[in-house]
């Protein structure tokens, strides 16, 4: 008999413990008289099938999410505004700048989580819908900020802040209306909270790593130091995204309606 414990351990990476045990049991029952190669092909096929959608969602949310959001920030004038305001000596309002940066960061997280959930669980999923709705609200608010700062030359900032806060309040009320939405809002808040914690932790780790790299003599590193530094950032960025998606998936599974839970 093939080593079923290894197969079960492998399957546990892509599904729950109970389901992995049941699938392994099915494979043992089916493959008692067959070659073990077929057993392992089946295990590989099942692992690929069960993780395919997660992988697809992860890659699209990671690549397309980042690309679209950064291009949106650039084309809407938000990045230009942050650069001008953040690096000029003539600050027109620190609070507004912090507000716009926070909105941009949260909007980016929501957009990526929303894309992931929409691909992984479908557009009918409550958490996917709520996340996408909040992401669009953040995008609209940022577009409004972009339009306001480029057309009216900064003077409309208080009005823009007020509109953004009002839109957020509407979103908050909408997300608390039903028990299911409240559950989903809790899950989303938890995801954002863990991601917010992961950002400084991963940032510190990457800073520490860069410091350690800077202490290594150049002759010991075969590649240019600047190239090493530029490759550190995406790795930690991906680590943050991986944490974000793992928490999101765990939180999502807790919000599943009761009639679909195993009994």
């Amino acid at each position: 008999m093939p080593n079923a414990s290894i197969a079960e351990w492998l399957l546990r990476r892509v599904t729950t413990q109970e389901r992995a045990a049941a699938i392994t049991g099915d494979l043992i029952e089916q493959n008692t008289k067959r070659a073990s190669l077929l057993f392992w092909f089946s295990v590989a096929g099942i692992m690929l099938s069960l993780s395919a959608r997660w992988l697809l969602a992860f890659i699209i949310a990671w690549q397309v999410g980042n690309w679209t959001f950064s291009h949106f920030l650039r084309s809407s004038g938000i990045l230009g505004f942050i650069e001008t305001e953040g690096f000029s000596h003539h600050h027109t309002g620190h609070l507004f700048l912090i507000f716009v940066i926070s909105l941009g960061v949260v909007g980016n997280f929501l957009w990526q989580i929303g894309l992931f959930l929409a691909i992984r669980y479908g557009l009918r999923d409550t958490m996917a819908r709520l996340t996408m709705m909040l992401a669009f609200a953040a995008i609209c608010a940022l577009a409004l900020v972009g339009a306001a700062v480029s057309i009216t030359n900064w003077w409309a900032k208080p009005a823009v802040s007020a509109i953004c806060i009002f839109a957020m309040l509407i979103g908050a009320i909408f997300s608390l209306l039903t028990a299911q939405r409240r559950k989903v809002t809790q899950a989303l808040t938890g995801t954002l909270f863990v991601t917010a914690l992961a950002v400084p932790v991963c940032g510190s780790m990457s800073g520490l790593l860069m410091y350690l790299i800077s202490k290594i003599p150049q002759w010991a590193i075969h590649t240019p130091r600047s190239l090493v530094f530029t490759s550190v950032f995406p790795v930690f960025n991906m680590l943050i995204f991986l944490i974000e998606i793992s928490v999101c998936t765990t939180m999502h599974d807790r919000t599943s309606p009761k009639d679909t839970v195993e009994i």
Partner: peptide, 14 residues
Amino acid sequence: FGDATPQRGGRPKR
């Protein structure tokens, strides 16, 4: 999940 059976290596049916 059903009960674990020896034919299935002590694993339950779903």
